[in-house]
Nucleic acid binder design. Sequence first.
DNA 1: ATTCTTTTGAACTCATTGGTTCAACATAGT
DNA 2: ACTATGTTGAACCAATGAGTTCAAAAGAAT
Lengths: 218, 218
Amino acid sequence: MTTSHGRIDKRQAILRGAFAVFARQGYAQACVQEIANEAGVAKPTVYNHLTDKATLFKHAVQEAAQVALQQRLTALEPLAVPGDDLRATIEGVGHELLRLHCDEHSCALRRLLYSEITRFPDILDVVIESGPHRLTQALADRLARLTLSGRLRATDPERAAEQLLALLVGPLEARSRMGTRLIDDDELWEVTRAAVDTFLQAYGAADRITAAGTASTP
Amino acid sequence: MTTSHGRIDKRQAILRGAFAVFARQGYAQACVQEIANEAGVAKPTVYNHLTDKATLFKHAVQEAAQVALQQRLTALEPLAVPGDDLRATIEGVGHELLRLHCDEHSCALRRLLYSEITRFPDILDVVIESGPHRLTQALADRLARLTLSGRLRATDPERAAEQLLALLVGPLEARSRMGTRLIDDDELWEVTRAAVDTFLQAYGAADRITAAGTASTP
DNA sequence: ATTCTTTTGAACTCATTGGTTCAACATAGT
DNA sequence: ACTATGTTGAACCAATGAGTTCAAAAGAAT
């Protein structure tokens, strides 16, 4: 209605192409002509939908961040209906989160945000709207539920959430050499198991003795 | 000798100015003229010392990464001579690491590496030479020693090291909104205590019962 | 068919900037 | 004093790229 009516939305194609080009060229090095080519569209059409290169960038990044957040939130869902093996459930969720984190799309988005956050105060809104804070909150909600049902002992759910995410994602940053090396699934599972292991040692319920092989003094 | 003789090293000034300008403008947006101004030097002088804008960038980033790593390594030193309160020692080191991590210099370096790592395969050497991997290794060494002396139970020191670093640094990335918000010392200490807490729960020696308030089944 | 909107390609303007050249100047070592 | 090396400022070249203009074309809606 308010945008182009009936015709397949060129705007979407432009934003997608813009993100693709920005992702592999960076903001300054990306030229609008190439974005237009990538989107299968003429250059003036780009300026017809988005006024500026800057706003083009902002909108492209914003959409990318929204879909990324959505993926992560859905990946979190199994925690709402955990099976009898809580560790396995958490490990499954953790592994999926790591897989998403290593995705080409996610890496590119992270790179773009990191690089231009200082010169684009506008995209700070994107970060707080669809950034990691939201994911931490959602995870904290799940952990709070699990704590109430006695299957976890997370006194401070937010703290537990951000630490679990840190344990998952942190080691990857170093291992993947800043996203250049891609990590095979075995290594991904290894990191996941390690993360969930220490997480459960700290926040696991009283069955800690049976869960971890490390019982207290005999 | 091989460089300018006697005269105060302009090269150093150039590299410093280059990093400063690159840090606040990004690679593409930074113009060599401004770098020359920042360094208090004429433009041809820049090209006299460094052949290219690209090599200028590479060298500037490389030096910055080296000093950053050095700072972190020295911050690690108290772990070699831990007092009787191991928790306090680790907390001290952790807090110092976080302080360095939040430093303007460090944030700028991280941003630059993240943004240009794809377009500059050269600086990948910098990452693996002075990147987080080195810090993890050094920390792993310390943790291994502490484990041998019975004050820790880190079967896999490397794993413990990368998890401790993740617990320290990870929560900051989210809280600092990608380095835009600066974090006061109180919050820094809070994150540090939380990190060391769960770290010791997972890797603390047998005095776990006394250290953490959460004893096993009575 | 006709009218209104959108798209298209190409050319064009204008500003920026990497990199160079060169003649004048400063400095250090002898 | 003399020379060799390094520095400076300014002007210059060539390329790149943002953003615009415009007339022609294509679609959609009535």
